[in-house]
Structure formats: structure tokens, C-alpha cells
């Protein structure tokens, strides 16, 4: 157990790495997921087809494979994803700006993968908004985009927030896979550094990693329960 007193900084850095990757991927997936959801309900058939194709591919391919393509196919295409070295953001989230591209690759893969699930959660929310709401908006002369922006999406977000939360929790756990693709400074990367390279006992290290994930996921779950309860209260008012 001396690993915790000796190497707490390694755990801490790994924890921070995971938090950073998850924040980036969550924001990215929520934005892209909303866009893909809008494509999927668009009145223009080719746009709908693009949205459906996206979801079909990324929902049905294992994350490991998506990460593989990000880590090995992007370099083949000559990209080290340096477009993610966003000035300002890379000063706050240091791994974005490093020469080694693996953090950026894994973040891209996690974002693209999670986008498909965010899209479907949002679409279920959109489907749960009564049809009459959109009809009333159309009958006032609102355009498709105005209808989405002012009437349908504000209600769909609320209905989708619980399924969206589950998607984000799954995403946090999925981020563990990044360690297998060269991203050392994450929670799961701690195992590589302490067990494989420094020969600490595996069990306490994995326990530490588990606690790290629980610190992230349990509060998220509690937050969702709270949201759900407050929604029930509104519904029965």
C-alpha cells in the first residue's frame, strides 16, 4: 500500500489527464451530437442520410477500433491533429499542445464515438416533445431552424438530460481505453507506469484507479438523480 504515499502525484496527474480528456470529449460530443441529431431530423433527405450513416458507423464499431484508426490512420494521412493545439485552450489543457499527438488522437476518437450516442439520446428527447408543439410553431410561421431553436430543442434537452448523463458516464469509463494507445497521463495510464515499469503490486494500483473513476462518475450519477427528481416534481405540479 506504500504506493499511495510514494506515488500519489502519479495518481493525481493521471486523474487530471482523464478529467481533461473527458471535459474536451464531453463538450465536443454534445456539440457534434446536437448537429448530427439536427441532420437526422432535417427535412432534406441527403442530410438525413449523412446523419444516419454517421450514427450507424460510430455506434456499431468498437471504441478500440475507432481509437486504432485515430492513432494509426491519422498519421498515415499526414495529420498529427495539430488543429487541436488551440491557443489559450492548450495553455489550460497542457496535453493538447504536446509534440506527442496521442492525447489528441484519443480525444478525437472518444469524441467521435460518443457523438453517435449523444445524437441518439437527443433524438429520443426530440421524439418525446409532443407533435403539437412543433405544429403550433409552424402555424405561427416559424422556420424549421427557428422551430428547433426556440420550441423543440429547449424542451428536448430537458427530456434527454437523463439519457445524456448516462452517455457521459459511459464516456468517462470508455476514456480508460486511451492508455492502450499511448496516452500515459490518464488514470488507466497509471497502471502502465507503476505496475509495468516500476513493478508495484497491481491490486492496490487498480484500486486507486477505480477510486479515481468513482470520484468522477458517482457525483455525475447523483446529479442525474437530482435532475430526474426535480423533473418529476414539475410533471406532477
Amino acid at each position: 500500500m506504500e504506493v499511495f504515499s510514494d506515488k500519489l502525484d502519479v495518481f493525481w496527474n493521471g486523474f487530471l489527464g482523464t478529467v481533461q480528456m473527458c471535459l474536451l470529449a464531453a463538450v465536443g460530443a454534445l456539440i457534434l451530437g446536437a448537429l448530427v441529431a439536427v441532420l437526422r431530423i432535417s427535412p432534406i433527405p441527403p442530410l438525413r442520410a449523412v446523419g444516419t450513416a454517421y450514427v450507424t458507423v460510430f455506434r456499431n464499431v468498437p471504441l478500440t477500433v475507432v481509437m486504432f484508426f485515430a492513432a494509426f490512420a491519422l498519421p498515415l494521412l499526414g495529420s498529427d491533429a495539430s488543429f487541436l493545439k488551440i491557443p489559450g485552450l492548450r495553455d489550460v489543457i497542457k496535453p493538447l499542445g504536446t509534440d506527442l499527438p496521442y492525447f489528441r488522437f484519443a480525444t478525437i476518437a472518444l469524441t467521435l464515438y460518443t457523438t453517435a450516442f449523444v445524437c441518439e439520446a437527443l433524438r429520443s428527447g426530440i421524439g418525446a416533445v409532443p407533435l403539437g408543439q412543433a405544429e403550433a410553431a409552424r402555424s405561427l410561421g416559424l422556420s424549421f431552424t427557428q422551430n428547433l431553436r426556440h420550441v423543440v430543442l429547449p424542451q428536448a434537452w430537458k427530456l434527454a438530460i437523463v439519457p445524456l448523463g448516462s452517455v457521459i458516464i459511459a464516456m468517462v469509463k470508455n476514456s480508460a481505453l486511451a492508455a492502450a494507445f499511448g496516452v500515459i497521463v490518464t488514470l488507466m495510464g497509471v497502471v502502465d507506469e507503476l505496475v509495468s515499469q516500476q513493478y508495484y503490486d497491481a491490486v492496490p494500483v487498480f484500486l486507486g484507479v477505480a477510486v479515481g473513476f468513482l470520484i468522477l462518475t458517482i457525483p455525475l450519477g447523483l446529479l442525474l438523480d437530482m435532475v430526474e427528481r426535480s423533473q418529476k416534481k414539475v410533471a406532477t405540479r
Binding site: Q133, P154, Q155
Partner: peptide, 12 residues
């Protein structure tokens, strides 16, 4: 102007 049987006021 259109008025519906089920009102369809914007709930939010």
C-alpha cells in the same frame, strides 16, 4: 392564425 383542440401552448 391557428387554434388547436389541445391548445398546444409552448410548455417551456
Amino acid at each position: 392564425g391557428m387554434v388547436f383542440q389541445s391548445f398546444n401552448l409552448f410548455a417551456h
